[in-house]
Design a protein around this nucleic acid. Sequence first.
DNA 1: TGTACATCAGTGAACGCGCGTTCACTGATGTAC
DNA 2: TGTACATCAGTGAACGCGCGTTCACTGATGTAC
Lengths: 210, 210
Amino acid sequence: MSSTGRTRNRRGQGEQLRQQILDAATTLLSQSGDADAVGMRAVAAACGITPPSVYAHFANKADLLRAATAELFDQFDRALAAAESGATDPFDALARRAHAYVQFGDDNPGIYRALFANTVLGRPAVGDDRAHPGSASFRELVAAVVRCVAAGAVVDRPGETLAVELWAGLHGIVDLRATKPEVPWPPAGLLTDDALTHLGLRPPRTKQPR
Amino acid sequence: MSSTGRTRNRRGQGEQLRQQILDAATTLLSQSGDADAVGMRAVAAACGITPPSVYAHFANKADLLRAATAELFDQFDRALAAAESGATDPFDALARRAHAYVQFGDDNPGIYRALFANTVLGRPAVGDDRAHPGSASFRELVAAVVRCVAAGAVVDRPGETLAVELWAGLHGIVDLRATKPEVPWPPAGLLTDDALTHLGLRPPRTKQPR
DNA sequence: TGTACATCAGTGAACGCGCGTTCACTGATGTAC
DNA sequence: TGTACATCAGTGAACGCGCGTTCACTGATGTAC
């Protein structure tokens, strides 16, 4: 079974395997986008070990995939946070975050699906979302929108409402384009910019247009 | 096995079972929202027959669930078409259609998921979407938006672009609320109305506001 | 009017497969004496 | 400096289960003579 020639860890170094297993599960989950499609045998094989060895580090599949899902949430949150760095003002920051959101979904459809696929029906999803209510990224999005409102955005709704409307809009752009690729979609950037514009989350004009 | 006491069909009436099987599969699919979660054994049990009997009417599971998915698309399309009846003008018609879209998704999360869950990754989905490129409902939505533009809507994009933006918005509203129920969402009706308003798909004012 | 028979609607048992998980084990390695 | 031993990192085989699907069959029913 150890055909890959993996050298076993030295005594006391057994914990290293835990990270390898988690990494393998995270990678497989980010590829399939579906926790049900990630098998314990596949995770073990990716690490060059036999399936029972996984159970020395994770109690069961649900535990392992919960940890893997948390890992992917972190990746997502970090990507959006990084996108904001270098922004010149709250509007620029929000726009960067919104574009990064869609870009991340496009670039990592498996991860996006693992985090945001509608799995509430039936089984409560193996990677339990309740521990991540929309993930930290939602709180950050609300904060970014609120900063725009404070900076003088001309809006007709409270910041929290605008934030969920923007979130729903961005989610729709990412998810529906992934689901229905045969539809002739305008460029993602245009859709994202329009969402921001329509919600009024643009810098206010210093002077009124003539 | 025939413990339910189902009386077998008379000779020549065997085709009746086909419809029963299709109905059972459609019902189960509308409950789970996931074709993988619909089992041939469960379909057979719901009809009071044994699993092999299904194969007299459908070649395999993929065929059966493709037919069931088509059935659900029809239900969806009919619900939206029915909602438009009685509309007084194109704007009213579009608003009714948009609200019906969200309402249908809220009332029938399983059906909505079966039709619009992002299943493009990995396997090409057992109920093949390519036969229903966004379903007839997409064409109808585009047509409804175009009629609003023709009726004088004050918009900044072509009708087709507005239609996909509206569709993405409605999808985001339905799907994200279903996926993240723990977020404090504003009422669905408000989100839907805002989407229409922000896109300019409202009756133009006859006179300019003062 | 009666009967043999082809046909039809379905059954019952089993197949091979992949899954998550369990259990008894093995063999290398560091440590205590 | 050498050796016995506890411990640790994993292995190998198997379990029970549910799945889609196949195959040989059964028994009722309409029809032909």
